[in-house]
């Protein structure tokens, strides 16, 4: 059994993971205090159009409508994190449930679920997300739903593989022969043992979800009421010759966030699967 202090020691041994955690906390703080740091609507004109960075009233410059880039980034952090977390939660709910059912029952149930998963894995997921959001009109809900719908297959496969291998492990067979119910076996015996790789994948999936959301917004499929990083870059695309800062800073915000999440994910992997981490040399 992994003790909490062991966990933190293993996590802290990975310097990148600690750095990632620090960045991530900074971004969360930025998102939480966005309205305090940058009061007012990020969509409103704050200064003259096309102000370069380090201008008096726009630290990171302004866009063609005089909106403050820094304010947009702070408010955009909320949307990114919100969508990243909720869509991952939804994908986890779909993926782990289907994967657990397939892995535990095996046979025909497994076959049917895996065919279904394969179908979703074959479909070019970004195209499906675009089609879904476009047809059902862009909003936070449709975006979260679309991201969840295209992201669950890897989680389902992972959960299935874990359940499949744990199901034949002797301690699970011992639970069957000592008369424990299926529910007890799934919840008490198998799930706790399959959790570590699922947690690690989920943390990486938050990063992918943020990338997906930004890509959708970049194409103009973001929630029209929410300022987001992808939207800012999309809007800056046509004026990149005049105003490089409009696309550079929001882009850096995405890179930092996603990088931080990936680093934390690797740290979690090292801490939760010590055997794997060691074999990575």
């Amino acid at each position: 059994m992994m003790m909490k202090s062991d966990f933190w020691r293993a996590f802290a041994r990975n310097k990148g993971a600690v750095l990632g955690l620090v960045i991530l906390i900074a971004i969360v703080v930025l998102a939480v205090f966005a309205s305090v740091l940058f009061p007012g609507d990020p969509w409103d004109m704050a200064t003259a159009p096309f102000q370069p960075p380090l201008s008096d009233d726009a630290l990171l410059g302004s866009d063609m409508l005089g909106r403050d880039i820094a304010s947009g980034i702070a408010h955009g952090a909320r949307v990114s994190l919100l969508i990243g977390l909720t869509s991952t939660a939804a994908a986890l709910a779909i993926g782990v449930t289907l994967g657990a059912l397939a892995g535990f029952h095996g046979g025909k149930v497994d076959d049917a679920i895996m065919r279904f998963t394969e179908l979703f894995q074959t479909i070019p997921n970004f195209v499906l997300a675009v089609v879904l959001v476009a047809i059902f009109t862009p909003s936070l809900t449709t975006i979260v739903a679309a991201i969840a719908i295209v992201s669950w297959p890897p989680l389902a496969r992972l959960a299935r593989a874990e359940f499949l291998s744990l199901r034949t492990r002797e301690f699970v067979q011992a639970a069957i022969t000592t008369g424990q119910s299926n529910t007890t076996i799934i919840l008490r015996q198998i799930l706790p043992n399959s959790l570590s790789p699922i947690i690690v994948s989920a943390s990486l999936m938050v990063a992918t979800a943020i990338l997906l959301e930004s890509s959708l917004s970049f194409l103009g499929l973001g929630d029209p009421n929410a300022m987001s990083w992808g939207y800012m870059i999309g809007a800056a695309r046509t004026v990149i010759r005049q105003a490089w800062w409009m696309s550079v800073f929001p882009g850096l915000a995405i890179v930092l966030t996603v990088l931080a999440l990936n680093l934390v994910g690797e740290g979690l992997n090292d801490a939760l699967n010590p055997k794997l981490a060691r074999s990575r040399g």
């Binding site: 002797e170 301690f171 011992a174 008490r188």
Partner: peptide
């Protein structure tokens, strides 16, 4: 009817 298994490392749930 009870069973004793082969692999002492796999037959006990590591988390209990």
């Amino acid at each position: 009817v009870q069973m004793v298994f082969q692999d002492p490392y796999a037959s006990l749930n590591p988390r209990h």
